[in-house]
Design a protein around this nucleic acid. Structure first.
Lengths: 304, 304
DNA sequence: GCCACGGGTGAAACTTACTTTCACCAAGCG
DNA sequence: CGCTTGGTGAAAGTAAGTTTCACCCGTGGC
């Protein structure tokens, strides 16, 4: 049998293992022994040195090399890394990650971590997917041209509001955040045409935030709502509605997923605004970074 | 605590690349060049021989070996197959979304959103992957049994600290957060055996936070650090170190990715603590939910 | 029955890759 | 200003991978 010198595996992106088992019968006995070892546990084979593998297959290194060539690889190291790659690809059916699922009572910490992270990451991704770029664009424009930006949020959303305020402030926009309803109302009453009022409420039912947005709107400010529920009351008082897409698990997870989603949206808006005036934003950011420099201790270097 | 010089990567099932980027600042210049090559294209690195890689990084083979050891691998071949495996595992980074990349100047908002969301989601996922469940478990235990928990964080990390404080408080744990260094120091001085001090610093170099943790430690409290860099100064004053895995893009993205990663870790700890005493936590949560009910407006129902 | 032939094989020689050692340099410190 | 210390690459050393080659053994022709 004129064995074709090489049946190239390089154009077989998916199935080196399959490829090998396919040509198993066409291999010589000693090579078959090698092949069987490789096919039965690619990951283990990848970890072995050529001498090791040869010994395990009760043959010589030379045969292993011949085997490599027979299946279309250049040499043993190449085979090795291909095997490692294949082996890595074929694992991971992460059954433990129930989408939007709750954490089972008996869960250990590793499971808890996996579940939470999965849901958090999904919330971020899904939020981005359903976010309307056109709406964002308009909001970015409004913020960029605003005389002043008031940001409202209560409880958990208050953190996000505060974060947004700080971000805008760092790039030189005039932004405020009020943890207190009364102060917020007072401020809203002083808004006017050309200003922006930005309300954050996960549920969209936080009366304090709605009230303040309403006030701002009657004064002529552009009102923006950030909420998870596109049909919640807050959307009635907003000119623009941006939505997050967190499928809240029960209260147990402390609404962190929705927080992350909100932060992501806020970050997008921030970057959008910053991108509108690169030079100025950059300068402002550098200045603020420098300001905290003296509060950092020596280099992050290796310790003995 | 005699910290082992090598931070083993073998127990990091998910994220060698992430692990490496975390250690990046603690590496020597020549090793950093190698690390950057590896991180920026793991698959390509896996294909190279050590001599090749050394040349590409403008250094010697010896340095590459040193780099391998620094990141916890036994030698170059091991690194190689790990890299191949990692590269295979990660699903094609859809080109527009440059991993850890910066946002191109001409980008439109849709691109910006995609890029940010992608990086944010990755930070969350990768953080979870490299998080050590055993360490978390110990921290959870410490917090569960603590007489009092002090949480420290400055600037952006302050939000996370505050969030954590609020979460713990809601399930009936006695937790404090101090936005002000002096108050924090005072409080730390009053900690004792059985208490927990939890410091958050993305860079791990925030002197205020380090100082406070140190103080807490001398008083006998268990100290925990949450940082992105496993060899940064803060880890020297911590009994337990938890790391996030945000590959910070430039300042432009305002460090949101790292914030999200921190929040995820905090959430995991929170759920872990809550899970230790389901009944009590549930009751506390229900009570707090009821408390804000009167600030919610009518149902989140469909509007005519 | 003997001999050429050819594929399959492993021992050994060889090459390349990887690892260790060591001396040098530059920076920080007393 | 000399001492120490960490980072570095050259060179020596070792192990891994590759090639060569002679041998074995079955086959088929003479």
């Amino acid at each position: 049998m004129a064995k074709s010198p090489k049946i190239s595996a390089s154009q077989e992106p998916g199935g080196l293992i399959v490829h090998i088992s396919g040509l198993l019968p066409s291999l010589s006995p000693a090579e078959q022994r090698v092949a069987r070892l490789v096919v039965s546990d690619p990951a283990a084979a990848a970890r072995r040195t050529i001498t090791d593998l040869a010994t395990a297959a009760e043959t010589s290194e030379a045969t292993v090399i011949r085997f490599c060539r027979s299946v279309g690889m250049d040499g043993y190291p190449q085979l090795r890394i291909r095997l490692a790659a294949e082996a890595a690809r074929r694992i991971e059916p992460p059954d433990a990650r129930v989408v939007g699922g709750d954490i089972p009572p008996g869960a250990d910490l590793a499971q808890i971590i996996a579940t939470i992270a999965f849901n958090d990451a999904r919330a971020v991704e899904e939020t981005a997917e359903q976010l309307d770029p056109a709406a964002c664009e308009q909001v970015v424009e409004a913020i960029s041209g605003a005389g002043r930006i008031d940001i409202y949020g209560a409880g958990a959303s208050g953190f996000v509001a505060s974060d947004f305020q700080q971000k805008l402030h760092r790039i030189g926009r005039i932004a405020f955040y009020f943890p207190d309803v009364h102060t917020a109302l007072t401020s809203a009453a002083l808004l006017g045409r050309g200003d922006v009022a930005f309300g954050i409420s996960h549920t969209g039912t936080t009366s304090d935030v709605i009230e303040v947005l309403e006030q701002a709107r009657t004064r002529g400010a552009v009102t923006v709502a950030l909420t998870n529920f596109p049909r919640s009351p807050i959307t009635e008082v907003a000119d623009f509605v941006l939505t997050t897409a967190a499928r809240e698990t029960t209260y147990r997870s402390g609404a962190t997923a929705s927080r992350l989603a909100q932060l992501t949206v806020v970050d997008c808006l921030f970057v959008g605004v910053a991108a509108r005036n690169r030079a100025r934003a950059r300068k402002a950011l550098e200045a603020t970074a420098e300001a905290v420099q003296s509060h950092r201790v020596g280099a992050n270097r290796r310790r003995a």
